[in-house]
């Protein structure tokens, strides 16, 4: 028997979950709470296998609640059912001990599948969450050492002229820009290339193969 505990401040969600599992004879909701405080109180009193919680709760942040449950009830499996889709929330919840992450528009069959998977000790992320994590991972910046900053068109243009030993005044005249604008670009180039002065800027630009 899989004993569920639901934490969500919207009763209709609770109803939805109950409907979804009503044909599953080995899954049962043993308790519900509308607030984190009530949940923490009840968790100490009941025997539970799996907690399903939302991130937006009236009295406490879901991430904090997840951490709390993970720390104080180590055997409990935790699954997130939420409307929040941001990757940062997904990673924060997974880091806080959640083993599953589903959106509230999940289908009944997927919900049941996820409950079983997490109960057995596995992880379950809904398809959209998975896609987002993969998209994020494939774009994550490489390590700082061999990182080559990306320059805007204007920065590239100005860097080329600096390396070609033009003064700020000359560059300004050439590009029809105010000298102060060129100065600003120089500041950002120095910050991006990790240089403290013009000499360092030129050196690093050549080293990184930007010119």
């Amino acid at each position: 028997m899989i004993k569920l505990f639901l934490i969500d401040d919207h009763p209709i969600v609770v109803t939805g979950i109950q409907n979804a599992i009503q044909e599953e004879e080995d899954i049962k909701v043993v308790g519900t709470a509308l607030t984190a405080t009530d949940a923490i109180r009840q968790l100490g009193e009941l025997t539970i296998d799996l907690v399903i919680l939302d991130i937006a709760l009236p009295d406490m942040d879901g991430v904090e609640l997840c951490k709390h449950i993970h720390k104080n009830f180590p055997g409990l499996k935790i699954m997130v059912l939420t409307t929040y889709g941001q990757v940062s929330f997904v990673t924060a919840m997974l880091r806080s001990g959640a083993m599953g992450y589903l959106y509230k528009n999940t289908s009944e069959s997927e919900l049941v599948l996820a409950i079983r998977k997490v109960y057995e000790g596995g992880r379950y992320l809904s398809e959209e969450v998975n896609q987002k994590l993969i998209a994020k991972a494939s774009r994550t910046l490489p390590k700082r050492e061999n990182f080559i900053p990306r320059l805007t068109r204007r920065e590239k243009e100005i860097l080329d002229l600096i390396v070609a030993e033009h003064t700020t005044q000359e560059i300004a005249a050439k590009l029809f820009l105010a000298p102060s604008t060129i100065e600003t670009h120089r500041v950002s180039l120095c910050a991006k290339l990790g240089a403290r002065n013009l000499a360092g800027l030129v050196k690093n630009a050549i080293k990184l193969g930007l010119v």
Partner: peptide
């Protein structure tokens, strides 16, 4: 979030 979002979730479950 709290209003339409929840109703949509419920609607989906019923439709299914």
């Amino acid at each position: 979030h709290d209003g339409i979002g929840i109703i949509l979730s419920a609607l989906k479950m019923k439709l299914e």
